[in-house]
Design a protein around this nucleic acid. Structure first.
Lengths: 350, 350
DNA sequence: TTGTAGGCGTTATCAG
DNA sequence: CTGATAACGCCTACAA
């Protein structure tokens, strides 16, 4: 763990100036002989360029951060899988931050932007506080937010359309004849919680269904909390016939509880999740879920950020990704599953 | 996104020298009046310390990296949840790298150590190549490896005891009367794959069971690959009565396939996973799994790293965390589950 | 083509 | 207590 060699060490060893070393290392035109000597010396010494020093001078780190609210949520992983290659191809290293939806940690990440440790940031905050907005307004490097921000916030922004998403799901449940459709939501002070809650109410209204307080249960966006919320709901409203869950983790928790309670899915209770994560397709029964385009949003965010990093000034941009309903067994029944399983010889139809 | 103020800007504004500014900012003894002026100026200007410059001088970044082979595997998340707070409490910011078990990416992370962007690294490589070992030998900052490394590698190392772990599982299956116990493993050129494969063979031998090639199926450490492997095995050996899966994701894939094939778990086939992740307890039927102490390993790794960061020289240390078998329904049956379940109980209409 | 020198923003050592 | 000033390791005019 000895102190590493610097360009000075190499210069001495090779008998040239540090400027020549730097040139060779950066591939600038240099005499062959010099190149050879420098390379040889660098090799022998096991030289690794000190990126900190280089960044101080160049004002670029070639690093970009992605701050995830919940590393355990596959929706973020789907984003990550799109973001990573885009940035990598452009020569950036991606560093991840796990904020666990803690506002203070998110602010800290935003703060670290000012510290110049990364050239840009993609972040997906669950809550957007005044502090967030202040930091964003004064950010000294490009930021892209995945998720909605208040009107007028001057920041690039890739959003899902949960309103349409929820509507797709509710309409689907309605078409299946469900009339006692409950909503299992996350905290209402989060961006998605608020949006999805409002969308639920609106969708019911447009279908002429009454909005019934007792059909709404607030928990949190994790599986155990989702399970608890559903258990509470079942206690209160035993004859509920459909659950609109604010994300897939909640929906998985719902399936756990329904199974334990002896309810059949979807015969007794239909279940819809949101985000259409890998887990939705893999669950049993497979889970109908509203895709909010996690992958597309990740990709769009990475591309927006890259444009800024390339020096694009210009007005903040808002990209909205359309939702899509992935129908599976938890609403359409096991037959549906069988039809999808790869053997379907019926072929045409759609 | 204007260029940020530096201590020079502040010094001018406050009418003092940059040295004084630095002192105030670092809380060194300074006259009250000076402190006031500096703080005021810094505040007004929205000063944020340039961490790159600071690091160049101080040779510390206060950042630590954790390179995860598979962000989607909850076993790594369990480590992360332990690592994060330990490091944070010691004043380090944790940055995550997702290497997807690609050796080149892992080498790149190791390389970035030399670039001085982080003060230390925790990493959990699936494969340990010559290149890894070379980089480790010349690493210029502390590294802790989670997972086994070849004897004699001079690096701090927190390992699981998969050998004992596999034995616990096989003994358990044997005690339940299973005799045709298959092994669904990941690639044999990975550290865990090799260890678990060998341990399986050994455990069978010690029980006096024959080692049957056709009972071993190699796939990969992910759910879909696990499912495929199990499907292939079922084709070949329809009367298998137990599956020892090399991790929980494989085991979940196994449950998927067994269900689709109409096999009852555990009546027809018992299933054991490894890592005892959240998913094991949450699956249906709940999954018996060998805990390899992911959380404990994460914590130990973080603590070892901290000691090194505090300047501990001394010999490389090896910590081994003992395994533990978590018995659940996938081997012990639904009765077991009912006894354990938190969701059921009286009351909801069953 | 090569070398000298200045500067990136901080910290830290010395005199005042 | 404070202010010059010299590093930290690298890049890059500018000169030679």
């Amino acid at each position: 763990m000895a102190d590493g060699p610097t360009i000075n060490t190499i210069a001495e060893r090779a008998g040239v100036s540090i400027a020549s070393v730097s040139r060779v290392l950066n591939g600038l035109p240099t005499r062959q002989e010099t190149v050879r000597k420098v390379m040889a010396a660098a090799d022998e010494l096991g030289y690794v360029r000190n990126a900190v020093a280089r960044s101080l001078k160049s004002r670029r780190t070639h690093q970009v951060a992605f701050a995830m609210a919940d590393v355990g949520n596959p929706a973020y992983l789907a984003m990550l899988r799109e973001i990573q290659p885009v940035l990598k191809a452009a020569g950036y290293r991606l560093v991840l931050h796990s904020t666990d939806a803690v506002a203070a940690d998110e602010i800290d990440v935003l703060h670290s932007l000012g510290e110049r440790y990364v050239d840009g940031l993609i972040m997906s905050p669950l809550r957007v506080t005044e502090a967030h907005l202040r930091m964003l307004a004064t950010a000294r490097a490009p930021v892209v937010i995945i998720g909605s921000v208040p009107e007028g916030t001057r920041v690039d922004n890739v959003r899902a359309d949960s309103r349409t998403g929820v509507r797709l799901a509710i309409d689907h449940l309605y078409a299946l004849g469900r009339r006692r459709i409950a909503m299992i939501n996350g905290p209402l002070d989060t961006v998605p919680g608020a949006a999805r809650g409002a969308a639920y109410r609106e969708a019911l209204h447009d279908l002429g269904l009454p909005y019934d307080e007792s059909l709404v249960q607030i928990g949190d966006f994790y599986r155990p909390e989702g399970a608890r919320a559903v258990a509470a709901l079942l206690d209160r409203v035993p004859d509920v016939d459909a659950l609109m869950c604010a994300n897939d983790l909640i929906a998985l928790g719902a399936l756990d509880v329904l199974r334990a309670a002896g309810k059949r899915v979807p015969e007794d209770v239909a279940v819809v999740g949101m985000d259409d994560t890998d887990l939705a397709a893999a669950s049993w029964p497979s889970l109908t879920s509203v895709s909010l385009g996690s992958a597309e949003r990740g990709k769009a965010a990475a591309e927006l950020l890259l444009e800024r990093l390339r020096g694009d000034a210009g007005e903040p941009r808002v990209v909205t990704v359309p939702p899509r309903l992935a129908v599976r067994a938890s609403t359409a029944g096991p037959d549906y599953d069988r039809r999808q399983s790869g053997y379907d010889g019926e072929g045409s139809g759609k």
